Amino acid sequence: MDVLGDVLAAMRAGKPYAGRTTCWEPWGVRFPAANSACCHIVLRGGCCLIPPHGEPLTLGVGDVLFTAAGHGHVLADRPGSPLTDFRPVRDDTSLITELNIPGPGAATELLCVCYSFDDIRPHPLLAELPPVIHLPARIGHHPALRSTVNLIGDELQRPRVGTEAILAPLIDMLLLYVLRAWIDEQAGHTTTGWAVALTDTAIVTALHHIHRRPEHPWTVEELATSAGVSRATFAKRFTAVVGRPPLAYLTWWRMTTAARLLQGTDASLPTVAQRSGYGSEYAFAKAFKREYGIPPGRYRRQRQSP
């Protein structure tokens, strides 16, 4: 029941990119507060995350650092080092970036991966992510994540035939493993939110049905039956954990589905309406404008324009 994969696919905007960054002391890199989430992995040496407020966070070899979209941050060898804005040299057709900062001191190598997300209507899961997720290198912890990091690092260090094709799914896997690790670490520490929703059998079953068949005329009772709990228990639990009632989330996901179809396909408006759970184009257009502020046809033209 890959609800997490659905969410990331729905929110994706453009291609992700990855690069090996080599910096010689003294150095610092300023990452802007854009609609990109970043994963940084220390491959050699060490550095620190310098937040806007609070104490620096020291990072060692093997540490994984995730920074959520909309949160600018600074990586540096130490506080007070000169800063360079993150502007990687990148071919628009390539996933691979390069950034090197020369200097007289010791070198630090980083693997940096960035993901762009649609910031018009971010999924509540992404909105709930903390500004920073730090996964320290610990033997026996998150082995699949460590293997993915090693594979990406190897492809970037020695590009050869098939590197671009191999990197694309590995980059997606990296983000999924980081978020899975965060979800696992939240277990038992909170009773609400998407980290709970994705580990609650009843709720994730209902989410799976909504995501797979948004066009179906779901009722709370039908979703509760599929989840194996009473209607009252399901409605209360879903609302408390997800943050909105089941049918309100269904409407939200239908509109998200419609926006993806409008932007990424040439499907006619009646087809988009039907696949989004609306029996008429008029009802769909009215609902879409209520959510996005503009009619679906104009949304398509704006989002598909170069």
Rank of each mutant, 00 (worst) to 15 (best):
M1N: 11
V7S: 00
M11Y: 05
R12I: 01
A13W: 14
K15R: 14
K15L: 14
P16D: 11
P16H: 10
R20Y: 02
T22L: 04
C23G: 01
C23E: 05
A33E: 10
A33M: 05
A34P: 01
C39D: 12
C39P: 06
H40V: 15
I41V: 15
L43Q: 07
G46I: 01
C48K: 09
C48Q: 13
H53T: 15
H53A: 15
G62D: 00
D63H: 02
L65A: 01
A69D: 00
A69M: 03
H73G: 01
V74Q: 08
V74S: 08
D77G: 15
P79Y: 05
P82R: 07
D91V: 08
S94K: 13
L95I: 08
T97A: 15
N100E: 12
I101W: 05
P104V: 14
P104F: 11
A107R: 14
A107D: 12
Y115S: 06
D118P: 08
I120K: 05
P122Y: 08
L125I: 01
A127N: 03
A127V: 03
E128R: 04
L129F: 05
L129E: 02
L129I: 02
V132W: 07
V132Y: 11
P136R: 03
H142M: 08
T148Q: 00
I152Y: 04
Q157R: 12
R158C: 09
R160G: 15
E164R: 05
L167E: 03
L167D: 04
L170C: 05
L170R: 04
D172M: 03
A181V: 12
A181W: 10
I183Y: 09
Q186A: 14
Q186F: 08
G188Q: 11
T190K: 14
T192H: 13
W194R: 00
V196A: 05
T199N: 13
T199F: 02
T201H: 11
A202P: 08
I203M: 03
V204T: 13
L207F: 07
H208S: 13
E215W: 01
R231K: 14
A232G: 04
F234I: 12
K236S: 14
F238Y: 12
T239K: 10
L247Q: 07
A248M: 10
T257Q: 04
A258V: 09
R260C: 09
R260P: 03
T265L: 10
S268R: 03
P270K: 03
V272D: 00
Y278P: 05
G279R: 02
Y282V: 12
A285I: 00
F288A: 08
G293K: 12
R298C: 05
Y299D: 02
Y299Q: 06
R303H: 13
